[in-house]
């Protein structure tokens, strides 16, 4: 009646609770499990083993790990109110474009800032572990991103809402019901804003987070470029030994 078209606070509160719960239920690793004290960092002997792997074997290992992480993101998406009501084309478009972005966002939980390592293959691994991939620049950008997001010390709820915001991007190509996605993303943004206010975070943190979206998109574009280059070198390898879901998501 007062001309205000924004959704009621109870709607936003409900969506916020739903997304935070979905995040916790689908996080792959609990935060307590990711305490660096629970796991050793990669030892010199392990490091040698990783570095001596052929480029193909290391790519395959990472493709498997990425695919595992992505499956949890699919579950996360499915539990977000409104996602399953989108048409199936749009569900697929959002997941193809955004699932790896969410994996990179979630990585900040698994990042140890004391020694610049990230939880990988049951250990904490530094960038040197990924040398055999032949993508030093991409790996160093991924670690930079994890470091910078980790330094914001986000709570689980904040990470959950930010992940949902990243996933429900209305500007993806090939969306059929752009307006529905736009409305959902707007509600998620409001929920995130409310939470940040409630948590008494610095003003400007929302802007900082929104800026991170372009960085994470750049990382995913570079992943696609590296994959294309790798596939040009070893076409059979990708075809026969990479997980089918990885090929569906990143194959074209």
């Amino acid at each position: 009646s007062n001309g205000d078209t924004s959704p009621p606070d109870s709607d936003i509160e409900h969506l916020s609770e739903n997304i935070c719960k979905s995040h916790l239920e689908t996080c792959q690793y609990l935060r307590e499990e990711l305490q660096p004290s629970n796991w050793q960092t990669v030892l010199q002997t392990d490091l040698d083993t990783y570095q001596k792997k052929s480029q193909e074997d290391m790519w395959q290992l990472c493709a498997i790990k990425v695919t595992e992480a992505v499956q949890y993101v699919v579950e996360f998406a499915k539990r977000i109110d409104g996602f399953m009501e989108l048409c199936q084309n749009d569900q697929i478009v959002l997941l193809k474009a955004g699932s790896l972005e969410v994996v990179f966002v979630r990585m900040c939980r698994a990042y140890n800032s004391q020694n610049n390592t990230v939880y990988f293959d049951s250990k904490f691994a530094g960038p040197e572990v990924f040398k055999a991939l032949g993508c030093d620049d991409l790996i160093s950008s991924v670690f930079e991103f994890a470091k910078s997001l980790n330094s914001l010390q986000l709570t689980e709820d904040e990470i959950g809402l930010f992940s949902a915001y990243v996933l429900m991007s209305a500007d993806r190509c090939w969306l059929q019901e752009k307006t529905r996605v736009e409305k959902l993303q707007q509600k998620i943004k409001l929920a995130l804003q409310h939470l940040l206010q409630k948590d008494q975070r610095d003003e400007g943190i929302l802007t900082k987070l929104v800026c991170k979206v372009s960085t994470v998109r750049m990382l995913c574009r570079r992943h696609m470029e590296k994959l294309s280059a790798f596939r040009a070198l070893y076409p059979e390898m990708v075809h026969t030994r990479f997980p089918p879901l990885y090929k569906e998501l990143f194959g074209s």
Partner: peptide, 20 residues
Amino acid sequence: KEKHKILHRLLQNSSSPVDL
């Protein structure tokens, strides 16, 4: 649909992360 058959399956499944 054929092109994204695994994604379709994952979206239709009522699986939980425990089943993954």
